[in-house]
Simulated assay, not measured.
Amino acid sequence: MLTNFGIKLYGKSVQIWNHTKNQRGAQAIEYIGVAALAVVLILAMIKLFGSDGDGIAKKLVDKLKEFIDKISL
């Protein structure tokens, strides 16, 4: 009976150990973080250079709109 209990306890500890080492979804979270950082940097550049006129900000906004229009869900 004690051997059976030890085997079950070992099995549960292996399951718990494997559960703590699970890395599923970590890469998706990293990609979301990089995308959010890119958006923040783009918005900061737009704010820094201004959004009116034919400057860098206008070109950046046009390219961003063009990129977003190409995305299809």
Rank of each mutant, 00 (worst) to 15 (best):
K70T: 14
V39P: 07
Q23G: 06
L43R: 03
K63Q: 07
I56K: 13
L48T: 07
W17T: 01
L41V: 09
I32L: 08
E30T: 06
K65M: 09
I32N: 09
T3F: 05
I29P: 06
L73T: 09
I32V: 07
D69N: 09
N4D: 15
W17L: 01
K21C: 00
A57H: 01
I29G: 09
V40S: 14
T20D: 01
I29E: 14
H19P: 02
G53S: 06
I16Q: 00
F5C: 09
A38D: 11
I71C: 07
S72R: 10
K47S: 12
L60Y: 05
N4G: 07
L64E: 09
A38I: 08
I56G: 04
V40F: 14
L37P: 06
M1Q: 15
F67L: 08
G11R: 04
L2H: 06
E30K: 10
F5Q: 09
N4L: 15
L37E: 10
Y10D: 15
A26R: 15
Y31F: 10
D62C: 02
M45T: 11
E30P: 00
Y31M: 09
V61G: 03
L37C: 08
L60G: 00
Q27A: 06
Q15C: 14
A26S: 15
S72A: 07
A57V: 00
I32F: 10
A36K: 11
G55H: 05
W17M: 00
L48K: 12
L64K: 02
A28K: 11
K58E: 01
I42D: 01
L73I: 12
F67G: 13
G33M: 03
L48V: 05
M45A: 05
L64G: 02
A36R: 12
H19W: 02
N4K: 14
M45Q: 13
N4V: 08
I16T: 04
I29Q: 13
D62H: 05
D62P: 05
F49K: 01
L37Q: 15
K47I: 15
K8C: 12
V61F: 10
S13P: 03
F5H: 10
I16M: 02
G55L: 06
G33F: 03
L64A: 13
T20C: 02
L9T: 05
V34R: 05
E30F: 12
A28C: 11
S13C: 08
A28Q: 11
I71E: 05
K58C: 03
D54C: 11
H19I: 06
D52N: 06
R24N: 06
T3W: 00
I71T: 12
T20H: 02
L41T: 12
A38F: 03
N4W: 10
N22F: 00
K58Q: 08
I56M: 14
V40A: 14
E66I: 12
K58M: 07
A36Y: 08
Y31W: 15
R24L: 11
M45S: 06
L9M: 13
K65S: 03
D69G: 07
L48C: 04
T3R: 05
I68A: 15
K21E: 00
G50C: 04
S13M: 04
G25I: 09
K65W: 12
G50F: 09
L43H: 11
L64P: 02
F5K: 04
G55M: 03
N4A: 13
G53V: 05
N22D: 10
K8V: 11
G55I: 01
S13K: 11
T3N: 04
Q15Y: 04
A35N: 15
T3K: 07
I16C: 01
Q15R: 05
F5N: 07
I29L: 14
